[in-house]
Nucleic acid binder design. Structure first.
Lengths: 241, 241
DNA sequence: CGCCATCTTGAGGTCTATCAATTTCAGTGG
DNA sequence: CCACTGAAATTGATAGACCTCAAGATGGCG
């Protein structure tokens, strides 16, 4: 167990889990896998696919359409669990793509379900985790369905800023403009134009894959961003008798 | 307990639950409430809001934006649980609106969380339930982000047909064209035009709030509809020792 | 019969997509 | 250090999808 069981890095923030539970979670994880940027490490429609815990790097879930269009469903940061949303289906509903070189651990679906079936508090933790994914997806939906390109981008950047690092105005964004377009339902060309507009408006600056939020309050106001949906309630503190 | 605990109507389909579990679920439910069409029975931002089981009628979850735009996040049919997606947050993330006259039961959030904390198999059932909501939301996102109005409407109607009644080509659609627009990210005017186009193309007919799918295969082909995402895997059949 | 919400239809405008041509830039090898 | 290369980003021009405003038609309901 080299760098430690990152599966718990978000859980710690959500609520206390005891040493026994932590041990069980750690045991679920396989050896560390290295996957290089751009790889598709899970295809759509796979049966009995494992889940992954993301230890380093960025990844995303993608749905491809017959005409070649792509929709990025989710962007994953270290500490997140990949594939949780498919746990109720017998076949994967999306592709998993490495955006950068990444390190992941495979987690058996069977084993996870069994573990959750025996440890209610862990099940609750995972439930809350899924609920957070759901809330993020809702925001994405509202964003795409209702806001023009400028506001869409503003919201997208503010969400990532909040997720990467709550305070720093500057963060790495290892995404191509085409990727951003796929996430926001815009063409790559229009992403370029719109980013340019935000830059000229002194709202952001971009430098070699690094974004700096120059005027956070103006951005927030423009797209009604409220990061409340990113935080979840820890499970009940009581222990079952 | 008049008409029986509808909270279980979908659960039965997902997996067997024993009489004890059924009893516990039933006990959670309060008295039956009648709410009339158009009422907002849950506001956004409420703390400690109850969940609801929907026994009769249609409801939906809505997010409103500052400029008056609305986004329908979910449409609920009898047997569904309302508010499940907010269980990880301390405050409600959406409005709940009755689309028709409805009957609901309130379910205490506290009590539900406690119950789930003690009954792993029920927790797993609810987990799968939330996963289904998630899958539906993903489809909605892809639909809105990537498909033009005609295909969006086709997908929307096919999903409802599958959910209301797997086989019947005809079903009631108690939604205004403005509601449909709010669900699909279209203006009411454009919904009207697009529906007209589908009608002229002999793909559907509409009569007094009742829709008939005339050419299901053409519709399905046009929007790549595949109802797989609507069905979930029942939980593991084993019982904890 | 008249009222109100809903739906339909038309005209004009805005936003975004597409196609195509450059430009920038990181990486590579000479 | 520099030229070369391919991916990514920028920019322009044009087209199409969808929106908004506005007027009229429809239809349930008192």
């Amino acid at each position: 167990m080299q760098t430690g069981p990152l599966i718990t890095s978000h859980f710690r923030a959500l609520g206390e889990i005891d040493d026994n539970e932590l041990l069980l979670l750690t045991a679920l994880q396989d050896e560390l896998l290295n996957i290089e940027a751009g790889s598709i490490f899970q295809n759509i429609g796979q049966a009995d696919a494992p889940l992954f815990t993301l230890h380093a790097g960025w990844a995303c879930a993608v749905r491809c359409l017959a005409d070649g269009q792509r929709q990025v469903l989710d962007i994953f940061l270290p500490g997140q669990i990949l594939g949780l949303q498919d746990i109720g289906h017998d076949t994967t509903q999306s592709e998993l793509v490495a955006l950068t070189d990444i390190e992941v651990c495979r987690v058996s679906r069977q084993q996870l379900r069994e573990l959750l079936g025996h440890h209610p508090r862990l099940a609750e933790l995972f439930f809350v985790f899924l609920a957070r994914e759901h809330a993020m997806l809702v925001e994405r939906l509202v964003n795409i369905a209702r806001r023009p390109a400028g506001q869409r981008l503003a919201h997208f950047l503010l969400e990532l800023q909040a997720r990467v690092n709550k305070d720093e105005p500057e963060f790495d964004l290892p995404l191509t403009q085409a990727d951003i377009g796929d996430a926001l339902g815009l063409s790559a060309v229009h992403v370029s134009r719109t980013l340019g507009r935000l830059k000229r408006g002194k709202l952001i600056t971009v430098n070699r894959g690094r974004v700096r939020i120059e005027d956070a309050s103006a951005l927030r106001a423009s797209c009604e961003f409220d990061k409340g949906y990113l935080s979840c309630v820890p499970p009940l503190a009581d222990a079952p008798p």
